[in-house]
Amino acid sequence: MKTLALPRQLPGRLPRNYLPVLVTGALFIAMFTAGGIRYEGFATGQIILNVFIDNAFLLVVAVGMTFVILTGGIDLSVGSVVALTTMIAASLLPSTPSFLVILLVLAIGGVLGAAMGAIIHYFEIQPFIVTLAGMFLARGLCYTIGTDSIPITDPTFTAIAQTRIDLAPELWISPTVLIALAVVLVATYTLHYTRLGRNVYAVGGNEQSALLMGLPVARTKIAVYTVSGLCSALGGLLLSFYMLSGYGLHAVGMELDAIAAVVIGGTLLTGGSGYLLGTVLGVLVLGLIQTVISFEGTLSSWWTKIVIGLLLLVFILLQRLIVTTGVSRER
């Protein structure tokens, strides 16, 4: 295949791995600048904060997805687990203390994830199929609980939903953003400063080698799906704060948004390469696209999907280019 040779090292001592993250970052800045020039009232800090506020739950889910994709897997169940969480929370809250509900849904998410991870690893079934079954299961459970939207009136939940944290005059965020950012920080620390994190990269880089190097491959694979399940449940909680309702049709197709955010953030879908910072940028780009389209007014919402699809195409081709040049060097 003919490909352009990428420079082995970018100026400024940045390894090639950072290239996609840089591209995504540049894209975000370019979109923000262009938006600022084109629309009045766009270039404000609150616009960026709003992107965070509106996408806090997606950010958390995408963090979990990043773990899974870094090992070379995929998790299609996240959207359904988000919906299931809102549903369980909404149906239990009237009769159960809120902290118990929160613990319970997190446990359910974690256990579901761990179960899928175990099936994937021990029975050697493709992650795609196992998590597809998980997706059906979680949605099915939602509908068994109820087919209608259930409002949430719990005081703790509504309090969180209505709280505004003022950062500066004219700049505020919601508590959910703080939670999401805390998740990002903890996850970044885990990926870069713990053995679990490095094992995630190793398994994604070459599972067979990881096994031969004595790394706990089984534990790592089960762990990433557990993390993803936990993140989905937490994302579901954030969504309940945001929507104040539980509904079986919440977060339909969210798995695609999460995967898109991770890929646009520069993580290789084949595993082993990528950064959480990229995922954060990916979520921001997705959110900003929606903002731009709402500012544009005449542009309709479906352009979001088309643009996301095109971005996916561009980034997948970019990844392909990086992998190809990387491999050809080794031959």
Partner: peptide, 18 residues
């Protein structure tokens, strides 16, 4: 070579016993 090429040289020497 049964190593992980995506990781740094140092990690490949020390992974699992960092």
């Amino acid at each position: 070579v049964n190593l992980c090429r995506n990781l740094s040289v140092a990690e490949n020497v020390f992974i699992g016993r960092e």
